[in-house]
Computed example of a mutant assay.
Amino acid sequence: MKITFIGGGNMASAMIGGMVKRGFTGRQIHVVDPDATRRTHLENEFGISTAEPGAPLPASDAVIFAVKPQQFRAVAEAVAPSLGNALVISVAAGIRAETLAQWFAPQPRIVRVMPNTPALIQSGMSGVYAAPAVTADDRELTERILSAIGEFVWVDDETDMDGITAISGSGPAYVFYFMEALQAAARAQGFNPETAKKLAYQTFAGAVKLAQESEDDIATLRAKVTSKGGTTERAINAFENSQLRATIIAAAAAAAARSRELGEEFGRDMEP
């Protein structure tokens, strides 16, 4: 088996690191990247082979494109003649399978993946969509790769990838934003920066672990903390009065709308 990455940045590094931990060998992984320093780092870190753009691609079972959306078309059209029968896996946001199929013609076996940054510690959440020509073997290979960086869910309708982008793709930023605010709240209560950080970080970590391990749903867990007439109820009422829940829902809708816009923009770029 051979997996080739086009682009060796953070997401590719996360995927490669997870794959090596899950039993892939260095000989099974190849990376194409223009940055010589990055190539050397990947070679030393994971024992893989690398090459600069323009070098012949090795025969591969899958080629994973981990490049910026704005660079994707030029890279795709340069690589397409060398793909052979490889499955194409894209981790670029917004670019639809129909657009990718045009760039990679005549290769119709395309999988879109929307990972998120916790993939860097093998705790990611990925949404996955397969074009109609993708085979059962292609799906199995995709799952083997993605399981190395965390959890994943398949979607049958490609438009659901916009929602995946809004919830789990962008979601870590929402969590970090709230953690920043909680840390700032701790500082406002007079705690020093180190204590404020510890209070905010461990509160999030512990709450997530409890939610994952509890048989109660999230609303029940919240209710158990929120005693009638108590401190937590006062805080929750402040959230509700400021329409925080509605704001979060609206923010995710805005992210999904932007994902749709990106798909339309790249689709237009496809036209001659």
Rank of each mutant, 00 (worst) to 15 (best):
S214W: 11
A131Q: 13
I167W: 09
T203G: 13
A235L: 09
Y201A: 10
V128I: 15
F178Q: 07
R112V: 14
G169E: 06
V128Q: 09
T226M: 09
P106W: 13
I218W: 07
S168F: 07
M179K: 01
I110M: 12
A136T: 15
P118T: 12
Q189C: 10
E240L: 12
Q107R: 14
D216A: 15
T195G: 00
M114G: 08
D160M: 15
P132G: 09
T247D: 03
Q243F: 10
S227Q: 01
E194Y: 08
F239W: 14
D160Y: 09
M161A: 06
R109S: 07
A136S: 12
I236V: 15
G127D: 08
D217N: 15
S214D: 02
M125K: 04
N192S: 03
A196C: 00
I167F: 11
R139V: 03
L210K: 06
R139F: 05
Q243E: 10
A238S: 12
L210N: 04
G190L: 07
E233V: 13
S123D: 09
L182V: 08
T203F: 03
D162C: 12
M114N: 07
V225D: 02
A235K: 05
V153K: 14
R144C: 12
M179W: 02
T231W: 02
R187W: 05
T231N: 07
A185D: 09
E240C: 04
K197R: 14
G229H: 05
M179N: 01
T159A: 15
G150M: 05
I164L: 09
A211W: 06
S168E: 03
K224D: 02
